[in-house]
Nucleic acid binder design. Structure first.
Length: 430
RNA sequence: GGAGAGAUGGCCGAGUGGUCGAAGGCGGUCGCCUGCUAAGCGAUUAAGCGGGUACAAGCCUGCUUCGAGGGUUCAAAUCCCUCUCUCUCCGCCA
């Protein structure tokens, strides 16, 4: 959410941001209501002042005095008028809140302008796309051949865009979660969090999923609860409506969660394989930082996510998202894209964003810069560190051998009792 | 699921209709004192939204806020209703 005062004073900046991000919103309606609201506020506050003063006088004079009786009659009318104005204000406030929640964050100055992903800018790459002496298979074929990933039965027991993992496949998923958490907590200074996988509407609003993107989330029928689309939601909301001490910052959290996404509007895209599932695992990195440090914190966060892929020896590149591909809440975002040989392309495996104070204002996350100082909004950041299912896909494809087996990345072998490959029997061997 | 108790400032905790934005304590800050430390003394210390003044820090001022929402009343932390959460006991349960 943007600061109302900022919107009032910089409507053109907001308008430009909306155009750059391709977001619609009733900015003019907001500004008109804002002016109206302040007029009403002045009127009702003057009336309340009168009522408060007279009520005090009644209290002093005694409620049964003649003067008090007269004043009570007067105040009855004043109170009616106040109630009427308060009702109007409530309606305007609610309308303004809805509009304000629909306005996107302002893109950072370094964000390239552009409509879609074609305008994203590659900032660096690591490793070379894997070379094969044979035609590399897609991960869904490898998974089926090794009998470690089962899409047909997932379709039977649940539906499309779900997967069942067996044996070494299940172990690989679990090993990756542990490996990522171990890395971030021991090497990068994050505190591990294991959050609930269901959150309430206030949390979804705090991080920006609601009200605009309700169709993307699974809601539990008959309740106010949503399946988390990412651990970002519960973890960022840990500090909702809190005032943190400046010395506590920065706060780093690393959280594993299953993630649930309805994938509204994604019909027909990535229908095969692990790339786009309704349920997937992810280790998420979340930071609460001082505003002046959020730029460099985004660089560090992105580096922390890259480290995962470097240790797994998976080739990747880092893209700076252009305005049109940036999304609603971030001011700046890097996507890390891993090399997928079968598709002969890079695919997103992590998204690292600086939300500046956009989420913090929605969620009421502040810090006190010093004793007696006014509380200010923190800056929040998060990034995948990294998406587990897509990492499995990348490992299967990049580490596949001509005989159909898949080598296990060196850093994961301790999770496989030292075995170095997954063989056709569906178990690990060495 | 049933019964009961509760939710007050950074924290603890008083407060059953007006003198309450709220006693007291802890913690924080400033000052004094004590030749270190500790203790002691004094002062100060909630947030949001407006208005005024100022280059600004700030100062002055109005309104709102005692879990959330609604109601009664001239007036609500205080009375009534609904909801949420916490605790205790009972039931059920991986």
């Amino acid at each position: 959410m943007l600061d109302l005062k900022f919107v009032r004073e910089n409507p053109e900046i907001v308008r430009q941001a909306m155009a750059l991000k391709g977001e619609a919103g009733d900015l003019d309606g907001l500004l008109a209501r804002d002016a109206k609201r302040r007029d009403l506020l002045k009127e009702v506050e003057a009336l309340k002042q009168t009522r408060n003063r007279v009520s005090r006088e009644i209290g002093k004079a005694g409620a049964d005095s003649d003067a008090s009786r007269l004043q009570k009659d007067e105040m009855r009318e004043v109170s009616t008028r106040i109630k009427d104005l308060d009702d109007q204000l409530r309606l305007i406030d609610a309308a303004m809140e809805m509009i304000l929640l629909s306005l996107p964050n302002i893109p950072d100055a370094v964000v390239p302008h552009g409509k879609d992903e074609s305008a994203n800018v590659e900032v660096r790459s690591w490793g070379e796309p894997s070379k094969f002496t044979f035609t590399p298979l897609a991960h869904w074929d490898i998974g089926a051949n090794l009998d470690i990933i089962d899409f047909p039965r997932a379709g039977k027991i649940t539906g499309s865009r779900f997967a069942v993992y067996y044996g070494a496949g299940a172990r690989l998923e679990r090993a990756l979660i542990s490996f990522m958490l171990d890395l971030h907590t021991t090497e990068h200074g994050y505190r591990e969090v294991f959050p609930p996988f269901l959150v309430n509407a206030a949390s979804m609003t705090g991080t920006g999923q609601l009200p605009k993107f309700a169709d993307d989330a699974f809601r539990v029928e008959g309740t106010d609860l949503y399946l988390v689309p990412t651990a970002e939601v519960p973890v960022t909301n840990l500090h909702r409506d809190e005032i943190l001490e400046a010395e506590q910052l920065p706060i780093y959290y690393a959280a594993y969660s299953a993630c649930f996404r309805a994938e509204a509007g994604a019909h027909g895209r990535d229908t095969r394989g692990l790339i786009r599932q309704h349920q997937f695992n992810k280790v998420e990195l979340v930071k609460f930082v001082l505003p002046e440090t959020s730029d460099e914190e985004l660089e560090k966060l992105t580096g922390d996510a890259e480290k995962v892929l470097q240790l797994l020896e998976l080739p990747y590149r880092v893209m700076l998202m252009c305005s049109g591909d940036l999304g609603f809440a971030p001011a700046k975002k890097y996507d890390i894209e891993v090399w997928l040989p079968a598709a002969d392309t890079y695919r997103e495996i992590s998204s690292c964003s600086n939300f500046t104070d956009f989420q913090a204002r929605r969620a009421g996350i502040r810090y006190r810069p010093g004793v007696g100082k006014k509380a200010l909004f923190v800056h929040t950041l998060n990034g995948s560190g990294v998406a587990v299912g897509r990492t499995v896909a990348a490992i299967l494809e990049n580490y596949q051998q001509e005989d159909g087996s898949v080598m296990i990345p060196k850093v994961l072998r301790s999770y496989f009792h030292g075995h170095d490959r997954i063989t056709v029997s569906g178990s690990e061997s060495g």
